[in-house]
Design a protein around this nucleic acid. Structure first.
Length: 86
DNA sequence: ACCCTGACATTGA
DNA sequence: GTCAATGCCAGGG
């Protein structure tokens, strides 16, 4: 699944659910994997289905995304614009 | 084995 | 658009 995450091009964003469907596992499995192993992959390009982000990292994540030119609206990523289906 | 908890998703109010 | 309830999978006590 880390492969799927690395597949996300810069400036684009995907969701836990999307990744989950790609690799055939539940979204929580993805979230868990990233929270533990993460670090070596662009985990910040993965957000919730509604574009919001996880509390523990939401600040950092917003910065990293903004740095790649990802549009954010009210603390939520504009998936309609940069969403990455896979 | 049972219960609680969490970087989640979907549905209905 | 925001909130609560329900379903889901895996870990830890």
């Amino acid at each position: 699944m880390f492969d799927a995450v690395e597949e996300i091009p810069p400036g684009r964003v995907s969701t836990y659910g999307a990744i989950g469907r790609l690799v055939g596992v539940g979204p929580r499995r993805v979230a868990r994997a990233l929270s533990q192993g993460g670090g070596a992959v662009p985990w910040y390009r993965v957000v919730r289905a509604d574009g919001s982000m996880a509390e523990p990292v939401r600040v950092r994540q917003m910065e990293l995304l903004a740095a790649e030119g990802v549009p954010v609206r009210n603390g939520k990523v504009v998936l309609a614009a940069v969403g990455w289906p896979g």
